[in-house]
Amino acid sequence: MSERRKRLQGRSKLMAYIAAGIVHAIIIGAMVFNFSSKPESIEADFAEKVDVVKATTIDESEIQKKQDELKQKEREQRRQKEAERKRLQKLKDDAQKEEKRIDELKEKQKQELEKATELEQQRKEIALKKAQEEAKRKQEAEERKKQEDARKRKEAEAAKKREQERLQQEELDRIKREEQELAARREMNERLAQEEQMIRQQRAQQRATTLSSKYAALIKQRVQPKITISPDFSPTLSTRMNVKLSSSGDVRAVRIIESSGNSAYDRAVETAIYASSPLPIPSQDEDPDVNKMFQDLTLNFSIDGR
């Protein structure tokens, strides 16, 4: 579209030039015509005057008459001459006038020309200015357009960027959300697992407690009669032993945690533990954890149970 407008603008410009040319030609033509017609009339006036002078010179009575006549004639002639001078003057004036007029005209023409030129110039300037302006405008427009474009581009880019960012954000959000969901789910699963484990543990613990108390009773039942008590032991004696067992209950090591202070009682207790080997403990099949627990026993011995 802009291309077409440009072309149109170009054409109208051309036509303006042509019109301007024609106007100039007409003006110049008119001026030249005036110039060539006027001088012819001026030369004819000069010829008549010469003839008149020769005739006035012949008779005296006549001359007087003639002189009168001549005087008349001379007066006439003078009048005529005056008239002629006047006329000439007038002509001269006229010529001057004309010349002046022509000059004026010329001046005028010149002025007009100048004016036209000026005008032209002006117009040209205007046109130029216009063109310039147009160009400028165009440039500006272009600039603006460019800027606009840039802006638009920028905006587009920004928008695109924003969009991208938005998408990214969305993606991020989505990922985050998913992660959160996942985490939450995991959390939930974990919690469930924990709860499950707790329940399991509780059950295991209950079971372990049951198992433990059962086997604790069995161990007690087995070890107790093997403790060789001497009647001279003080009834307040008590001792604490740590017993390490194998998974099958074989006594691996017995360590005194708290001695009774009576080595005979300590020894009797220690012997009872060894003599009871293997101790009845929950098998690994029954409960590996409890079995493990039972592999490290603390036995509290006392004579009177207080």
Binding site: K220, Q224, T228, V269, M293, N300, F301, R306
Partner: peptide, 18 residues
């Protein structure tokens, strides 16, 4: 549970010789 080591109280014994 780790701390709840199995602890068994055993009192008395047998008054006897080895």
């Amino acid at each position: 549970t780790a701390q709840a080591q199995v602890s068994i109280d055993i009192s008395g014994g047998t008054v006897r010789g080895k």
